[in-house]
């Protein structure tokens, strides 16, 4: 946009007025005197979540069924700290979490605790609503606010041949 503006210079007689005018010019004289435009700025912020602080679950070598292992993690959720968990076993059979090895399979169980007690999970199925996630800090301020418990099924452990059994547990958090 450019603006041309004409104005009188000092208190001169009328005959001399025309010559005494100074022309102050900026921009193109063809442009309109003023122009305005409005642009709306809008953003729809969706809820965001994050899970972090996960560690591997390595059971001790044992002939007998080892004790359960737990891991403390951080869940961030802008949905007032609420979220759902879906845990999936790479070797799942139906809803069962399974470790696979040369000597067969070992079933295991996964439970999640946000607030309150542990809730048993099914592989590939979203949990009930969990609470207690951090509302403001994606890293939970360096702390943790949820717990995962992994326990091995005694019957399938007893029946398994000696050897190494492994699985990859994938955990997805969604706002709720």
């Amino acid at each position: 946009m450019s603006t041309a503006r004409v104005r009188p210079v000092g208190g001169l007689a009328a005959a001399a007025v025309a010559a005494a005018f100074a022309i102050l010019l900026t921009g193109s004289p063809a442009a309109p005197a003023t122009a305005e435009a409005d642009r709306d700025v809008q953003i729809r912020k969706l809820d965001a979540v994050r899970i972090s602080g996960l560690s591997d679950f390595i059971f001790p070598v044992s002939m007998e069924t080892p004790a359960p292992l737990t891991d403390q993690v951080c869940v961030f959720s802008t949905a007032s700290g609420r979220y759902q968990i879906t845990a999936t076993s790479a070797n799942a059979s139906g809803r069962d979490f399974r470790l696979a090895g040369d000597g067969g399979i070992i079933v295991y169980h996964v439970a999640w605790r946000g607030t309150g007690g542990y809730e048993e999970l099914d592989s590939g199925r979203a949990s009930d609503t969990m609470g207690g996630g951090s509302r403001t800090s994606p890293s939970c301020g360096g702390g943790t606010n949820a717990s995962i418990r992994v326990s091995l099924d005694p019957a399938t452990y007893a029946a398994a041949l000696p050897g190494i059994y492994a699985d990859t547990l994938t955990i997805t958090v969604a706002p709720d």
């Binding site: 899970i51 679950f57 190494i164 547990l169």
Partner: peptide, 11 residues
């Protein structure tokens, strides 16, 4: 958000 962990046991 998705993370993963290995689960291992040795009989």
């Amino acid at each position: 958000s998705t993370g993963s962990a290995d689960v291992r046991a040795e009989k």
